[in-house]
């Protein structure tokens, strides 16, 4: 029971929802860059939310199945085929022994997720299967998958055909407006600089990765950068280094940061960061802390509702 990588794609890795409680040792949370997309795939298959999935980045793999297994592709849209027949995101795909799933052209977004109705035979490190690409551990030997690699499954299942309803499918525009709350050092920036931050569209640069999303635009200058107290750096935090180009800390970011923090992408919108690629344009809209928490509660309630809805379906299959 395994899948074989005929081609691995640009950066395909095993991810789940990451690690908690290890930041004090310098280990960032990691996990799926777009955890919402990853969860939707598991949800459709009746898997627990942290079942490991494959994260596909920009160029997808070509996979051969050596067992019958149901799977779901979510997140970024590619031209997808199973044995040459077109298949779609957000619905159960039934692979048979010998089937080949091919990722063709990228249509929208950056990262797709492949969830499987089964359990990969991998070792947990710090209670997670996630590949920490910056530090080289977890997943399959701490590395992205390579051509010829096999992933073995401990058990596989097939589930009935099922799909996400149209209104629950995620779409990626390449120019999202991300909601933020004020950063811990917002007051160190002048009114003019803050105005510049909230009114321009920043370009995502090619140096962006799971560690950080690097932006460029009209530079932001900070009045007093000498007096910053280093502290815990969480995903979503937007730091401004001396060159004035902001960096959004991402899932594999450093755990301690010392640059002034102008703003913080709200938790509810962080999944959109996983779908950014070079030359996308993003802008920021400020909300209050209370509003940020309300939006998160709203998204979480929707996810719970979907989980209930699709698990009902699964019980009646």
């Amino acid at each position: 029971m395994s899948i074989r990588f005929i081609d691995a794609g640009l950066q395909t890795s095993v991810q789940d929802l990451g690690r908690t409680g290890m930041m004090r040792y310098g280990v960032s949370q990691g996990g799926a860059a777009d955890p919402l997309a990853a969860r939707l795939g598991n949800l459709l298959l009746g898997n627990p939310p942290h079942n490991p999935v494959l994260e596909v980045t920009l160029i997808g793999p070509r996979l051969e199945f050596q067992c019958d297994i149901s799977l779901v592709v979510t997140g970024a849209r590619f031209t997808l085929t199973l044995d040459g027949e077109s298949v779609e995101n957000d619905q159960v795909i039934q692979a048979r022994r010998g089937s080949v799933l091919n990722f063709g052209q990228l249509l929208s977004g950056t990262r797709a997720y492949i969830a499987f109705a089964g359990q990969m035979a991998l070792t947990r490190i710090f209670d997670s299967f996630s590949t920490h690409l910056q530090s080289g551990f977890g997943g399959c030997g701490g590395q992205p998958l390579k051509k010829g690699d096999l992933i073995r499954f401990e058990e596989t299942r097939t589930v009935a055909d099922r799909q996400l309803r149209e209104e629950h499918r995620l779409r990626y525009t390449g120019h999202p407006r991300l909601r933020v709350v004020a950063g811990a050092e917002e007051t160190l920036f002048s009114g003019e600089t803050l105005e510049r931050f909230y009114t321009q569209a920043f370009r995502v640069t090619p140096q962006s990765n799971r560690m950080g999303i690097r932006l460029t635009g009209e530079p932001l200058h900070c009045a007093a950068r000498t007096q910053i107290i280093s502290s815990g750096l969480c995903p979503g935090t937007i730091q401004v280094p001396p060159d004035g180009d902001p960096i959004i800390a991402f899932v594999e970011g450093q755990t301690i940061g010392g640059y002034p923090r102008i703003a913080h992408v709200i938790s509810a919108d962080q999944h959109l960061l996983g779908q950014l690629k070079a030359n996308d344009r993003i802008s920021f809209e400020k909300v209050s802390l209370a509003r940020a928490h309300e939006i998160l509660a709203g998204k979480s309630a929707l996810l719970n509702q979907l989980t209930a809805e699709y698990s009902c379906h699964s019980a009646s299959d």
Binding site: S230, C234, A292, H293
Partner: peptide, 21 residues
């Protein structure tokens, strides 16, 4: 969720769904 000590700071990360800021 996380306690991150630094030279002059202790960062306390929390899940906004489970605790009130």
């Amino acid at each position: 969720r996380e306690l991150i000590p630094a030279y002059q700071c202790l960062t306390v990360c929390y899940d906004p769904l489970l605790c009130d800021s």
